[in-house]
């Protein structure tokens, strides 16, 4: 039993140590600003199109599903509210994060994994650079900066998708839809919708880097790390969104 528990506990310990070092390095020089901007470009600009596309269709689907249900009660005017609440609180942050996890946790794990198996990480240490400072911290900062932004864009495009359905199928006017969508949102919905991507960003960056840095076993090992990074970060996103929502509801229960 103890032997069964040892590897996951050791892995968790390593993960925590990596996280501590990565956060500590934010406040330590040298800072690799170039690397931060490159990662922001790769992750943020690179994910923009796919995130927008998924945002648009999640808004459309939400509106379509709700349209049928709400029409039964003659409450089709509320479609804007429902799309807005679900997107901003939950779907926007989670879908965006899962997409970015699929796209970038894998990218980070495979890039760092390849560097590990070709001894580039060792070379870095041998040549006077802390690999956590140079590789992990810039990715952490970049993701924490761009994931909330991507989520905002995805939310907005999702709402636009909802408007498209509301106006074409339910005959709602521009102001009917947008006013209800806007007014239903409270500050704590927006705060929740921005806290989640920030937490997910940290998870995606650290999980991707963690699996990358502990890659062993050549190119096969890189493949394994990549898969593990995507699976773990996606699972963590869902677990944490449930946790945050629960805590949030307790704290702000009306």
């Amino acid at each position: 039993m103890l032997n069964l528990l040892k590897p996951p506990i050791e892995a968790f310990q390593e993960f925590v140590l990596l996280s501590i070092r990565a956060f500590r390095n934010i406040f330590r020089s040298p800072h690799y600003a170039d690397d931060i901007f490159i990662q922001m470009d790769v992750i943020g600009v690179g994910s923009l199109f796919i995130v927008s596309l998924i945002g648009l269709f999640s808004g459309i689907v939400m509106a379509l599903q709700m349209a049928r249900a709400l029409t039964q009660y003659g409450a089709q005017g509320q479609v804007g509210q429902i799309v807005s609440i679900t997107l901003v609180r939950e779907l926007g942050p989670v879908l965006t994060a899962v997409l970015v996890a699929g796209r970038n946790a894998s990218g980070i794990a495979s890039e760092l994994g390849s560097m590990k198996v070709t001894e580039q990480i060792d070379a870095m240490r041998a040549l006077g650079t802390d690999p956590i400072q140079k590789l992990v911290t810039p990715r952490l900062i970049a993701l924490a900066a761009v994931l909330p932004l991507l989520t905002i864009i995805s939310d907005f495009i999702g709402l636009t998708g909802g408007y498209f359905i509301a106006s074409t199928m339910l005959g709602l006017t521009f102001s009917e839809y947008w006013t209800s969508a806007w007014q239903v949102l409270e500050y704590n919905d927006i705060a929740q919708g921005l806290l989640k991507p920030l937490v997910f960003a940290v998870i995606i960056a650290l999980v991707g880097c963690f699996y990358g840095m502990k890659t062993t076993g050549g190119t096969q090992g890189v493949g394994r790390s990549t898969t593990s990074a995507v699976v773990s970060s996606s699972v963590w996103i869902f677990v944490l969104t449930a946790f945050i929502t629960y805590v949030w509801n307790r704290a702000f229960a009306q």
């Binding site: 560097m115 001894e119 580039q120 060792d122 070379a123 870095m124 040549l127």
Partner: peptide, 29 residues
């Protein structure tokens, strides 16, 4: 380690840097 030079078995050259940047790496870092 600044006083030691190492040639790694896998080369350990940084893929994302040019040859000149790779060779300059110890001097600049």
């Amino acid at each position: 380690r600044a006083r030691v030079g190492i040639l790694f078995q896998e080369g350990g050259l940084f893929d994302s840097l040019t040859v000149a940047e790779n060779v300059a790496y110890p001097l600049t870092n």
